[in-house]
């Protein structure tokens, strides 16, 4: 279950990260998302290198785009592209930039880097799947807690809740880096708009899996779902 076709596992991720950074110690922006991304691709998302163009695949959108090394490491471990690509991170002829480009990287659903685009795009994808009668695929968008500052997220949160986009899940990786914080908790911003919520330890794989799969196991999918994955503070 936890082993990819290439035989790479969670334990291989630090080595893959080092292939990009050349550094044994990885900064917080690179690793805050690592466990969430691993659980998503290992246990949750119904997508594989063989199904990247399948209309019924699950869509994962890395909205924040910054520190994409963890994303690249997980995609490489799962065989979406060769691990040999990793050392060329950021080079002129590399597919792997400091922000991901969907046109260049197999399996990457959106190009990101500018904050506040992934969730609104995800709303459009969720609507597009629904309009085409594709009821099984989910759209999962990963944002950062500081990224929530961007107003476009709040347009998306309010609208998705109002129209009951049950095929949309947001994962907020919360390393408490928002300049003005979110008094009352991040989940409250979503629940007031009609989302179901779960707040879990962003390093606990089983808890993440349960929270991320909750909308799939629920018979009632008329509400969008948010998982707040709390990790160690960026400046803690």
């Amino acid at each position: 279950m936890t082993t990819s076709e290439l035989g790479l596992d969670y334990a291989d991720l630090p080595r893959l990260l080092t292939m990009m950074t050349g550094d044994e110690k990885h900064d917080a922006s690179a690793t805050s998302t690592l466990d969430v991304l691993w659980v998503l691709y290992d246990r949750v998302l119904r997508v594989s290198p063989a199904t990247i163009d399948d209309p019924t695949r699950d869509r994962f959108l890395l909205s924040k785009g910054h520190g994409p090394m963890a994303y690249y490491a997980v995609l490489a471990a799962k065989g979406f592209f060769p691990t040999e690509w990793l050392p060329r991170f950021g080079a002129l002829d590399s597919a792997l930039g400091y922000h991901p480009d969907r046109v260049l990287i197999p399996g990457v659903e959106i190009s990101s880097g500018s904050l506040g685009h992934g969730l609104p795009l995800g709303v459009g994808m969720a609507l597009g799947l629904r309009a085409q009668g594709l009821t099984s695929p989910r759209v999962v968008v990963l944002v950062g807690d500081a990224e929530l500052d961007e107003g476009t997220n709040h347009e998306a949160i309010a609208y998705a809740g109002a129209v009951g986009l049950g095929n949309l899940t947001t994962v907020v990786v919360d390393n408490q880096s928002a300049t003005h914080g979110w008094p009352g908790g991040i989940a409250s911003r979503f629940s007031v708009n009609g989302w179901t919520t779960a707040t879990v330890d962003g390093r606990d794989h089983d808890a993440l899996e349960d929270a991320l799969l909750a909308p799939v196991t629920s018979a009632d999918r008329r509400q969008p779902h948010v998982v707040v994955a709390v990790v160690e503070p960026k400046f803690g």
Binding site: P120, V123, G124, A126, G128, L129, E155, Y159
Partner: peptide, 20 residues
């Protein structure tokens, strides 16, 4: 989408990415 023009354009992008 209501009075949310940036969302309107992003939604158009998301729809297009699903083939619409």
């Amino acid at each position: 989408v209501g009075i949310r023009e940036p969302l309107m354009v992003s939604v158009a992008g998301g729809l297009a990415l699903t083939g619409m």
